[in-house]
Amino acid sequence: MSSGGKEAQAVELARFFFDLVRRESCGECLPCALGTRQVGVALEGKGAEGTLLREIGRAMKQSSKCGVGRIGGALVLELLERYPAIFKAGA
């Protein structure tokens, strides 16, 4: 983990985890396959934010077929709760 503030570390960790979710997403169920990609875009600061991202996170967490999408969704909700800025920074 690189140096920097707690926020920066969280961003890096989030990206790491999300990359994992994205690579594990099989494509069999749609909230996970499509949501994971949208969250990935959001993490680059280019996609959905705020309410919409929360809805995507919820759909992933509650509707996905398996743990990959469900954990991915929970991660989005957690990040929005604690570090909402990371989806806007684009950093």
Binding site: L30, P31, R58, A59, Q62
Partner: peptide, 16 residues
């Protein structure tokens, strides 16, 4: 919650 989840999933599908 169900109406929201269904609509979000459908919006994701429609976005592609």
């Amino acid at each position: 919650a169900l109406r929201a989840a269904r609509r979000t999933t459908l919006e994701l599908i429609l976005s592609d």
